[in-house]
Structures are given as C-alpha cells and as structure tokens.
Write a protein that binds this DNA or RNA. Structure first.
Lengths: 312, 312
DNA sequence: GCTGCATCTGCACAATTGTGCAGGCGACAA
DNA sequence: TTGTCGCCTGCACAATTGTGCAGATGCAGC
C-alpha cells in the first residue's frame, strides 16, 4: 500500500522524469505528500545514488599512501568538504560499500565486520548485492544500548541487503573481568561464532580513538576507571575490542582480556580492510596499521593526507 | 583537471550535501559552472542513481506472468508513467542492469549481447561491476552507421564499465546474399567470435518489431524490397538477426540466411534474457517467447500487462 | 463521548535548481 | 588584421523543491 506508492512515486520521479507535482497528479496525491514519499524512499534505501571516487587527485594520493604503508590496497574518498565528521563517514562508507559490493557479489563467502558509525554508513550505502551465500559475522560481542551502529545492527543490516545470513557473537562487548570473558569464550555457541569469524576471508573493521569523545566512551561501555587505565597505559586506538598503543602493540590493560572477540592473530590470517573516516582518526589509524594485520585501508582525502605526511 | 573538478563537485554536492552555490564557492566556480559540471557527471555515469523495482504490485504481476509463460524468471519495472517509449526503455534498462550487475559480478563469465535502444539503456545504467574476467560478445554483425545502440557500441560499453573484454563479430549485420553471409561465417576470425558467443553462459537480447518504424528499418539496414518480403512472409519480430513469424518460427525470407550471427539453436543452449520495453513490442515479444529459447524476460509494467492479457 | 497526545496534511513562503539568451573570448582562415 | 564561427560564461528569469507551522485527523484511555 504505502510501500507500493512510495516505490511508484520514486520511479515516476527518477526514471520517468516527472516533477513532484506531476507525480502527485498521476498518483492522486498532493505535491507535499510526494515530497515526503521521495525522501522516505531515499531513507529506506530504495533510491540510491552512488558515485565514482576515481579522480586523478585521489588516485595519486591513494597510490602514494599505498607505497608508504606497503599494504595491498588503498581507497581514498574525495574530500566531501565539510569539517563535519559525519560527511567523511558517509564518503568513506560509500567507497567501502562500492568495494564490498564487488567482493561479496557472489559465491559462498564469509565476511567479518566490526561496528561503529563508519561501518554503519557503509551498511547504509550498500545495495545491489544479492547473495544468499553471503555470511556476515560480527567480530566482537554486543552492546546493550545499541543504535544502528552497534555490532549486531551493522552485521544484520549488511546481511539483510544481500539476503544472506548474519551471525552474532552472543556475549557482551566487555565482560566484568578477564575470567568472565574467558568463561564466555568457552561457551559452545560463542565458540561457534568465533570459529565462523576466524574462517572469514575478509574482515572489515573501523578504529576508535580510545579517547573521551570516542563512541566507545560516550556509549557508556567503558567507565571512568577503565578510561584512566587506558590513559596510563598509553592506549591511542581500539579495534575489534582490542586496545592498542601508538606502536601497534596491545596495551597492558585488563580491558584487552575482557573483550570476547577474535584476536589479532586471527585478523592477521584474514584479508582485513580498515575504515578510517575523519582526520581525528589519523593517529589511531596509524597505530592499527603498525600492528601489521591491515591489508587495505579506505579513508577520506583529508585523513589520507595526514597519514601520508606523518612520521615514518 | 576538468575531470577532477567534476568528480570533486559531484562529491561535494551529493555526499557533502552542499548547495550548488556553496560548491561553487569552495571550488572557485560560478553556480552555473557547477550546475553544468553536475549534469556532465551524471551523463558521464560518474553519478548513478539506482532504484528498487520490487513493489508488491510489480512482484505480483511478474509472478503471474512467469506462471503464464512458464519461464524461469520475470522482472517487471514499474510503469514510469509516460507513453514515451524512451522512458520505458530507461526503466527496463535499469532493472536489467541491476540484474546483470549481480550476474556478471565476478569470476570468468561470458555474456552475449544483442543491440538496440533498450540494450543501450541497460549499458547506460550499468555501473559498479568490476570484473576483468568478464567477456562480452556481440551476437551479431555490425551496422555501418552506428550510434550508441549499435552492436559494437553496446558490447564495448558493457565491457568497458566492468573492465572486461569485448569481442565483436567482424562481419556486416546483413550480407547481400546468403552465399556472401556463408562466406563471412567461414572466416576464421568470424568463427572464433561465433565460438566465443556460443560459449556464453548468458545472452541478453532485445526484440525488434520488424515494422516500418522499427530501428532496423529506420537505420537503413533493410531496404524496401526486404521490407516487402518480410510483410509477405508474415514477419512480426526480429532478434539477433533472425526474423520470426507470430508463431515463433523462422520466417521464410532470405534475410534469415543473410545475417551472420549465432543461430536459434545456439540460444536454446544458453540462458537467454529478453528485454522488451514498451507495449508496441508486445506482439513481437510474444513471437520470440513462442520460439522457446527465452529463460527470462525483463519488461515494463504496461507491456507485462499486455503480455499477461494476450491470448494463449 | 470526551480529552490529551501524536501523527498527518497542506499552505505560505524560502531556497534551490534549471533555462534561454546575450555577450565574450579564442581559434582559425582569408 | 579582421571576420566569423563555435564554444563558453554568467545573467535574468522561470520552475521546482524544501521548510516551518497551523489546523485537521485519528486514536487510546478514561
């Protein structure tokens, strides 16, 4: 009913080339109704605009960065202009989605995914994949107060657009003690999920800054005491529930023993794509890159420049 | 230079969410310049909007038609509204492109393609495929005065977006006599192309109405005498250089011996997708369907209804 | 039935986008 | 040097699209 007219309106407008007024006449709706229908359709992902990122400028930048980092592949989204980090996330998300569209297009394939706003943006931009043999596995435990960027949501949304299967890690993102985390990881169902994650040919993760304004902090997952421990241990980045120092090594904090998730060694065995959107992530991204398990980075132009400039 | 600013402007506008005015300020261009840049980018296929066609209405229609025709698959594009046939072609082209995007996504695959305005629309709408192992083969000979809808153009454009390989049939679409056509088909290079075409796992063809206003006539390929012979023999459709009667059998005209192309038997062995855009094509499409080699039809809502209503 | 709450609708107005056209500018030939 | 031809640029104006808001409508709970 509404579903139908929405799609019909979108076709009349985008393919038929009618004005919103004309669409309204044909469908017996007011122009305003059509206006809202169209924006709904865009929000629902029924209408997707996707664009090329291969300008000569970004290509050169990507190649330079690829050489410097000595990794397999670098994709750079053009600078979307605003300092607003959400624009950078959308840009990186779109480029990552276009890449994933090709990778996950067909055949039996397992993809491990992290969480966060950039991965959420990627899920938003992802369309046109139809692969029932796609398995999407969450690489870490779940949050409690979970928005669209939580581990479960991101994983489920990606699986859903492709018509594939989603697998979650049935454990909390952060356990109260290392012993509890170990207990969780011994559970049969958790082990099954972890095994699936370890078999993933591709992993897509993002990076947190480990700071005060980071999503991990603001979402209330890590508390005050943990924050202090992180600062003391020199944590500058976190991915997949692992907290790293600037040199890419695991920081000596018990947090690293308290997150049920796959380990860094598992990631080294898979083809890992790192999403880093926004220059504020540059330092953290550098730390993750130093850890040595990243095969491809997708980032925006500004951040790419910062990474290229940075020492060593 | 221009290439670069065009893409940059597109990102600022579509991803960054700036108005054309603001984009102009950032890039040091006038609003009008930006306006033109954006429409260029759309024309160049750097910006693509694609939309879902799965409304409940068209799904029901598709399923009904699938049962009636007893073929594997039916895709119905929502009615784009105008009686204008080019809108129908765009709609069908977009749906077909979305289907092909999935099919041709990866792995070594050979796809045979026909020609015409609908296939050209499909090529326009096709993006996001990146498969160097894709081989696109033209199923018939070439036209002389060839626009973007000629066999060579369609084939090359599809191959180009995917970064794959295009193979042409190095022969004219129509030879002067059956003997000449046979001579062409004995050429080694022609035989190679035909062999490649026969090995295609998928073929995508459209249908001509065989009438006066058909592209085949207006493009000057068939002359007056041939037209009369076609009328006398009851030709109502042509695909891939074969001219069919309403019952789906080859019409007794020497045209059928004069077109260097793969044969109907070859098509029966492959998975054939028929594109039929616009109700004017309904009769012709019916004839092709009766020939029995079609596995999937992509059509628009209006035409689908006509086909569904039609006798037998 | 009534009340309060939330959602939906369409309007006036604001902003953005698109178009036709006149002038400008460089290329090229005479 | 000059004419002229084609293309590009930006302007005035036209059309389309987007927004805030007031009233309408529906609906659950009393």
């Amino acid at each position: 009913m509404t579903d139908d007219t929405r799609i019909r309106a979108a076709w009349l407008y985008h393919v038929g080339g009618f004005s919103q007024d004309e669409v309204g006449q044909r469908l017996g709706l007011s122009r305003f109704k059509v206006l809202r229908l169209l924006s709904d359709a865009r929000a629902a992902g029924e209408v997707v605009i996707s664009l090329d990122h291969r300008s000569s400028g970004t290509l050169a930048l990507a190649e330079a960065l690829r050489r410097k980092l000595a990794i397999r592949d670098v994709l750079v989204a053009p600078d979307p202009g605003s300092a607003d980090a959400s624009a950078a996330r959308r840009a990186v998300g779109m480029v990552a989605a276009n890449w994933l569209r090709v990778v996950a297009a067909s055949g039996p394939i397992t993809v491990g995914v992290g969480w966060g706003r950039t991965l959420s943006a990627m899920a938003d931009a992802l369309t046109g994949v139809q692969n029932p043999q796609l398995r999407v596995v969450s690489l870490m435990g779940a949050m409690v107060r979970t928005g669209p960027e939580g581990p479960i949501d991101v994983c489920a949304r990606i699986a859903q657009v492709a018509g594939g299967q989603a697998l979650f890690l049935p454990a909390p993102f952060l356990a109260d003690s290392p012993e509890d985390a170990a207990l969780f990881m011994r559970q049969r169902l958790v082990r099954e999920a972890l095994d699936a994650a370890r078999s993933a040919s591709h992993m897509i993760v993002s990076v947190g800054e480990g700071g005060r304004e980071a999503l991990l902090t603001s979402s209330g997952v890590v508390g005050k005491a943990d924050l202090a421990a992180m600062a003391a241990a020199g944590v500058v980045a976190d991915t997949t529930g692992k907290f790293l120092r600037a040199d890419g090594t695991l920081a000596p904090v018990d947090l690293n023993e308290r997150t049920p998730a796959i380990g860094l060694a598992d990631m080294a065995r898979s083809e890992v794509t790192l999403l880093a959107a926004g220059a504020a992530k540059a330092r953290a991204a550098r730390a993750v890159l130093r850890a040595g398990f990243v095969d491809r980075i997708v980032t925006d132009e500004v951040t790419a420049r910062v990474l290229l400039r940075g020492e060593a």
